[in-house]
């Protein structure tokens, strides 16, 4: 007996349901990751004038690097410029919540930290913010991963993850690499 067009469409619908289930499984896992594990893309929409970073209270030269805030939170502030990070090396403690805050006075940059899920674009006009916990100690690479001009290849920094006991803030709460 010849197979009719409706038989064919029925088999396609059956297949579409299999596809639907497969896609729904991934979708559910992504939602679970976002809501339960709190893994979401960096999306804080916080603006800052790239032409006047030096006038901002937060991203002035003296306030960059890692600092234990008065209320105890640990924040690392980094400015990405053509073609270097300031500071070029930051210290963070292992197994503690850390907030990275990054911005740029010039063009688009971006960072990842090797071996971790830390990843964000740095777009002029915005503060990029990533909350994370570093679990492995050692010197990690933090390269600029977005094309920012001819010096892009030389633009990278170091994230030095130290055991909690070696993380010793000074009187102002600051910790630096050297």
């Amino acid at each position: 007996m010849a197979v009719s067009e409706s038989d064919i469409l029925r088999s396609e619908v059956r297949w579409a349901m299999i596809v639907g289930v497969a896609v729904a499984v991934i979708f559910a896992a992504v939602i679970y990751t976002g809501i339960e594990l709190h893994v979401n893309p960096p999306s804080n929409i916080e603006t800052i004038d790239p032409k006047a970073l030096h006038l901002s209270n937060e991203f002035t030269e003296s306030n960059l690097g890692t600092r234990v805030e008065p209320e105890g939170r640990i924040t690392t502030r980094i400015v990405a410029t053509q073609f270097a990070f300031d500071p070029p090396c930051v210290v963070v403690p292992a197994n503690e919540p850390v907030t990275l805050r990054l911005t740029t006075p010039d063009v688009i940059h971006g960072i990842l930290v090797t071996g971790t899920n830390v990843n964000t674009m740095i777009v002029p006009g915005y503060v990029a913010q990533v909350h994370t916990v570093f679990t492995k100690t050692g010197d990690l690479l933090m390269p600029c991963h977005e094309y920012c001009g001819l010096g892009h290849s030389q633009m990278w920094a170091t994230v030095r993850v130290v055991p909690r006991e070696s993380f010793r803030p000074d009187a102002e709460g600051r910790v630096a690499c050297d």
Binding site: P41, S43, E46, M121, V123, G125
Partner: peptide
């Protein structure tokens, strides 16, 4: 996804 100028 990794850009700071859009909301979750």
């Amino acid at each position: 996804f990794m850009d700071p100028e859009h909301s979750t």
